[in-house]
Computed example of a mutant assay.
Amino acid sequence: MSTDSTRYPIQIEKASNDPTLLLNHTCLRVKDPARAVKFYTEHFGMKLLSRKDFEEAKFSLYFLSFPKDDIPKNKNGEPDVFSAHGVLELTHNWGTEKNPDYKINNGNEEPHRGFGHICFSVSDINKTCEELESQGVKFKKRLSEGRQKDIAFALDPDGYWIELITYSREGQEYPKGSVGNKFNHTMIRIKNPTRSLEFYQNVLGIKLLRTSEHESAKFTLYFLGYGVPKTDSVFSCESVLELTHNWGTENDPNFHYHNGNSEPQGYGHICISCDDAGALCKEIEVKYGDKIQWSPKFNQGRMKNIAFLKDPDGYSIEVVPYGLIA
């Protein structure tokens, strides 16, 4: 199990050299799936790619993304959601929509802070925010509010924060013109950046794309991903992970973030996918042993051909192969 002193100095060869690796999806639990799916499709233009119902365990998964024309098919002839970038997985545990006392933990309220937000990048942020307001979408922060006038935060039906940014930036070569809305990144707060950066880079092979330090507010942002396509920028690409470090947390032995899977629940996980997820998990097991916490190990849970491991802060990371039939 990971501890504050655990380090991750060994590079996993499979993660470092596998061009098929991608940060596939982010999972959020929702109270009412009909309401949540309608929100993301009608207000932001996402498409429902797939729905999977698990009657025995009494939950359903809804996979959405912004329109894409390059998603391959799985062996059932359905969109292979596990080989696409920028996928949002909404998880519904049956019956929550009928419980008036059930509330999702959005990750931003004490004492259960941890997950921060998802981020959509758009071509014209002023137009997007105006349209959302006219449609009745609620905001945590409008463009005109706060110190940063170039970002906004909308609220989804469960109170999750959706950061809105623009990829149309002066002096930027790509993209040239509008390329539609993009699911740019997912933000989680971390206690110790040295430890977390080692984990994500060496164990999972995710590269550090950029760092943004905010000295006056005493926090640093680290943006990681498996690469940026030539025709994109770090603001228009999809499947980026943002790690937020509030200075000083690493020095407090009693400090910890809420991982979203302990009660009260909300955020679920990010998912890493590749051609051979079993080989990746096997190498991590061999090289790191009990320094990595699994729940479960690959192919050892009720759902086959998947694994879940935990990062240094206890956030869950799913690992799946392309073409998985959920």
Results as ranks from 00 to 15, higher is better:
Asn126Glu: 11
Gln148Asn: 15
Gly136Arg: 04
Glu133Trp: 10
Glu145Asp: 07
Asp124Cys: 06
Cys129Met: 06
Gln135Lys: 12
Phe120Arg: 02
Phe139Pro: 08
Glu131Gly: 10
Arg142Phe: 11
Leu143Gln: 06
Arg147Trp: 09
Asp124Ser: 12
Glu130His: 15
Lys141Ala: 03
Ser123Phe: 15
Glu131Cys: 13
His117Tyr: 12
Phe139Trp: 04
Glu145Trp: 06
Gly136Phe: 00
Ser134Pro: 12
Glu145Lys: 06
Ser121Ile: 07
Gly146Ile: 03
Glu130Ile: 14
Asp124Phe: 09
Gly116Asp: 10
Gly136Ser: 02
Glu145Asn: 07
Phe139Thr: 05
Phe120Lys: 01
Ser144Asn: 15
Ser134Met: 10
Ser123Pro: 06
Ser144Trp: 12
Lys127Thr: 09
Ser123Trp: 13
Arg142Glu: 10
Ser121Val: 05
Glu133Thr: 13
Cys119Asp: 00
Ser123Cys: 09
Ser134Phe: 12
Gln148Ser: 13
Lys149Asp: 03
Lys140Val: 11
Cys129Glu: 06
Arg147Pro: 04
Glu133Met: 14
Glu133Ala: 15
Gln148Leu: 14
Lys149Gly: 00
Asn126Trp: 10
Gly136Cys: 01
Ser144Thr: 13
Gly146Thr: 00
Cys129Phe: 09
Gly136Asn: 00
Leu143Met: 08
Asp124Gln: 07
Leu143Val: 03
Arg142Ala: 13
His117Gln: 13
Glu145Thr: 05
Lys140Arg: 13
Ser121Cys: 04
Glu131Ala: 15
Lys140Tyr: 14
Glu133Phe: 12
Leu132Glu: 08
Leu132Lys: 04
Glu131Ile: 11
Lys141Met: 07
Gly136His: 00
Ser121Leu: 05
Asn126Met: 07
Phe120Ser: 03
Thr128Glu: 13
Lys141Pro: 09
Gly146Glu: 02
Gly146Ser: 02
Gln135Tyr: 01
Ser121Gln: 03
Gly116Cys: 08
Glu133His: 14
Arg142Trp: 11
Leu143Arg: 10
Lys149Phe: 03
Asn126Thr: 12
Glu130Cys: 14
Glu131Ser: 15
Gly136Met: 01
Leu132Asp: 04
Thr128Trp: 11
Asp124His: 11
Gln148Met: 11
His117Asp: 12
Ile125Ser: 05
Ser134His: 14
Phe139Gln: 03
Gly146Ala: 02
Lys149Cys: 00
Glu145Val: 02
Val137Thr: 00
Ile125Thr: 04
Gly116Met: 04
Val137Asp: 01
Gly116Pro: 05
Glu130Ala: 15
Lys149Gln: 01
Glu145His: 03
Gly146Leu: 00
Ile118Lys: 02
Lys127Ser: 14
Thr128Phe: 10
Cys119His: 02
Lys141Glu: 07
Ile118Glu: 06
Gly136Pro: 02
Lys140Ile: 08
Lys140Gln: 14
Gln135Ser: 04
Lys138Arg: 05
Ile125Pro: 05
